[in-house]
Each structure stands twice: as C-alpha cells, then as structure tokens.
Design a protein around this nucleic acid. Structure first.
Lengths: 262, 262
DNA sequence: CGTAGAGTTGATAAGGGTCAATGGTGGTGG
DNA sequence: CCACCACCATTGACCCTTATCAACTCTACG
C-alpha cells in the first residue's frame, strides 16, 4: 500500500496543453518549458542550476504527482527510484524505532529537493503531512545531470548544508528545551516557513498547522497530551488564538519568541 | 582567548624535511606532497578529490595545528577564515542557548572536513574534545578549488549528507529514547568510530571515551548524574567494565546493542 | 599531604508521561 | 436537515523518570 492515494500525471497530458499565446512567448527550443516558468524550484530550488536545454530534458522525463494527506512517499529502508521537488504542501521525514516510537526528523516545504543521492536505499521514511504535489524525476537522469552540470551538485550541497543546520537546531530543541519552549519554537518555525511576511516583522501571524497534534508530538519528542496542554497555556496567556484544531493565530510574535528559549 | 592552546606548524618546517629515500620514490612534480601520502584525508577525506598538482598547491597553503583538549576552535557566530581536515582526535560541535544550556550537535573524527561553506559566519561552536591535530587551509583557496574541481564539491556533498544522516539518527535518540537507551547508543557509536574492528564483530571492545561525563550529558540531553547512574547500571549488569574514568570496555557488544532501543 | 576537579551516590522534587474520561467536529446516511 | 459515529483534541488524576541539590569519593598533581 505504499503508494495509496498518489495520483500521477504526465506533463504532456491534455490538462497541461500549452495554448497559442504561451507558445508565442517562448519560441526558442532551449527556453524553459512552460510548466517550469511558474515553478518555485526553477528559481530558488535545484532546477535553478540548469540551462534551458537541460531543463527541457529534465521536464520531459519528469511527471507531476499529487499525494493526499497521510500517504507514504518512501518507506524506511525502501529502494528509491526517483527524486522529486516539492511544489506545494509539506512532507514529513520520519524515523521509527522497532517498538513503534516515532520521531519526525525534518519537514520539507516547496521548493525543497526530496531524495538521498549516493545511497541505494533511503534511511528515513517520508510521507505527506498535508496534500502534497511533487515534480518527480528518474534517479538516473538526475545523476547524469549532476555529472554534466556541477552547478546542480552545488545546489544540492547548499540544500544539504541548510538541512544540516536545521537538524542541529532541532537537536538543541529536543535535547535541552522544556515542553513550553519546544512548542513556542515549533510555532515560530512553522510561521516562518508558511507565513514569512507576518512572522518576520508583524506582531501577529495566521496560518494552518501542517501537522496534527500527534505529528507535532512526534516532532518535538513529546506526547499529544503535553502538546495540547502547552498550546492551551499559550492560548490562556493571550499569545496565540486557536481558531480551530488546525488554524492558529499568533497574537504576538515577539512574546512567543520570548518563550522559545533563544 | 579563542585560540588559547593552539600550536601551529608549517608543513615546511625542519621537522618535516623529506629525506633522500622519500624523494627518490616520487620524482614527478605532480606527485602527492610527502606529508599527504600518509594522511587519511588523502584517501577517505576531501583531499581524495584532488589531483597531484592541486594537492601540492593546497599543501603549500596549508598548515598543521595541534590543539589541546578543551580549546575552542570556532566560537558561535564567529567569522571563519579557514577550513580544516581533522587528522587525529575528536572535535565536538556545540550549540549554546542564551542562558547557558548546551547541546553537542555532532562529533568529528579523522578524516572529517571541518567548516561551513557558503556562510560568512559559523552557526555552531567547535572545540577540541581531546587533543586534536588539524590540517588547515585558507577559505579562499578551498573555495577556488571547489570551482575548479567539481569532485571536491562532490566529496563535500557526500560528507554533508552523511552528517545529516547522523544528525537525524541523534534526533531520534534525543527525542524518543530513554536515558538508558541513550547511553547504550552513545557507547556503541563511539566504539564504532574509535574501535571499528572490535565493535563490529567481536563480543568485547575497549577504548578511551573522548568525552567527559559533562560532555556526554550535553550530547545526550541529560545531566551528569544521570549519565553516571546509567553507566553504573551497565557496569553492575556486567555489560561494560569501567577501567577508569575515561577507559571503558564493552564486555558484550550484542547485549549492549540490545539496550540501545534499535 | 592537601587541594582541586571529576565522578559517584543518595534524598527529594518536578516536569512530563500514562491512563481515563470528556468534548468538539466533520462526514455519512437516514 | 439532522442524528450518529469516528476521529481528533482537551482536560484531569496519578505516577515515574529524570532533574536538582547535596554530600561524599577518587585521582592527579603540586
């Protein structure tokens, strides 16, 4: 059941036909494919390393997938035959102990690259925290391009180092922060990824949590009860508003940051 | 006092003079510099990506440092002007919260590469857990070579991905394991890095802990008292022998692994 | 031989886990 | 349109693991 809930489209399916206007705007053969021009990965993601021709080649080999909430993308220790870019939604990376204890070890947002080069099988599981759309490529195509275009490897190195910084930041949270500090740090991290404008300067920020209470607990090394209690505490203290289970408003970003422990 | 306790040598200092026999063995101008031939980093580390000429050039710009136990290599948020290879000893990577709580977020052994490309200042602190020897290069030389030799970037990407796997492995340990499991996991990890032979197949393994109880606590998100109590418990159960504060013998690797939670 | 620093051990307390009951909310079918 | 159910989240009572505080031991070193 690994791919339950995954719908796959081809980039050349009828729904994505370019119309005459679009064609007229990019007549050259090495201009970016129509579907790449609006893609975040083309600018901030790994595809930014490719020239027009390479991008066209990759687009020809790629396909769009829409994965519904909860579906598994990659099982632990499963052989992986493709890489992907996250186009929208949130992917959670998980590790599970033999007795079932689970830890979320990372979250991926658009336009992150999803996959583990240089390893036959993945060491972690990946699943859709929300509905996710992915642009997936065959492993072999990406690996050939890495050899032809060093810029691509450079982009992957930059993302790997950023993820490493994130992982180490969370090690501090997991190892040394209290439950209250963990929740505050988590809300701030989500806000910065989902509503960067508001979280940066503004005093308030509203967003839908991409995770259930159970996921948040698995991310912070807590139980769902503790997560719930700490959210309630922040609500009573007037720092957040809980519109419904998923939707949160941070009433005062500065005060919340003051409770994150750093 | 950032560099207290650091002794610096040049690679061309008298103590490292090549004798006639060594010269005779490698007459070509692009053969590896004498001091690189015996270096682990030349084979398993990043230097393996360089050809003879590049290696010679890098060696000319590099210098050997011996850092005594406890000395700080890089302060948090400090500007870094050089990269290094770890030649021997153990470097601990730390993060500290404003109120002083500390978390060790990684350990580096020979022949790991030390440094954070693409960032002006480091986001973590680094200090010598044991006496450490480093081979250091100017930032600019390494960065130019990264552009000239894509293989170098490939090596860095591989190391970054390995470190990311390690960091995520420890996130599980920090977030979901009990104190007893944390200590068992830690001892196994150290044994695998310091005494790989014995830890792999053998039933017993002896080694010197590269960390104090306080460091172990900071690595595992515990207090020194809990670390001490759990070590005592393993000793009483006949799984380890504590020769002295630093030296440990794992009497039964299999039984210890059974207590690591995975 | 005395002191300092690291480690151990013990008593107590608190933070967060566990177990159990209750409270929303969204989806389905009558 | 409403009632019911399933699932998620909240709240409460209690307990356990680990932190905290304190005393003591051991070893290295002058």
């Amino acid at each position: 059941m690994a791919f339950a809930g995954i719908v796959t489209y081809s980039f050349r399916m009828p729904a994505s036909r370019p119309n005459d206007d679009e064609r007229a705007l990019r007549p050259q053969s090495d201009s970016p494919p129509a579907l790449c021009t609006a893609c975040e990965a083309r600018h901030r993601g790994v595809c930014g390393a490719l020239d027009g021709e390479q991008l066209a080649e990759l687009a020809r080999a790629s396909h769009l997938q829409v994965i519904e909430e909860g579906a598994e993308l990659i099982g632990d220790a499963e052989r992986v035959e493709s890489y992907s870019n996250v186009l929208s939604g949130v992917v959670k990376l998980t590790k599970t102990l033999p007795d079932g204890r689970q830890q979320i070890v990372g979250l991926q947002f658009a336009p992150d690259f999803l996959g583990r080069p240089f390893r036959e099988e993945s060491t972690i599981g990946a699943s859709a925290a929300t509905t996710v759309s992915l642009c997936s490529f065959p492993k072999s195509t990406v690996e050939r391009m890495m050899r032809e275009q060093p810029q691509l490897e450079n982009r992957l190195l930059r993302q790997a180092l950023d993820e490493l910084d994130d992982a180490r930041e969370w090690m501090v949270t997991l190892g040394r922060k209290t439950a209250a500090e963990k929740i505050a740090s988590f809300l701030l991290m989500i806000a910065r990824n989902i509503a960067p404008r508001a979280a940066g300067a503004g005093e308030t920020a509203s967003f839908d949590l991409p995770l259930t209470r159970s996921d948040i607990a698995d991310f912070l090394g807590l139980t769902i009860e503790t997560v719930s209690r700490q959210l309630t505490k922040l609500r009573i203290d007037g720092i957040i508003r809980i519109e419904n289970n998923r939707r949160i408003t941070i009433e005062n970003v500065v005060r919340l940051a003051g409770r994150a422990g750093d």
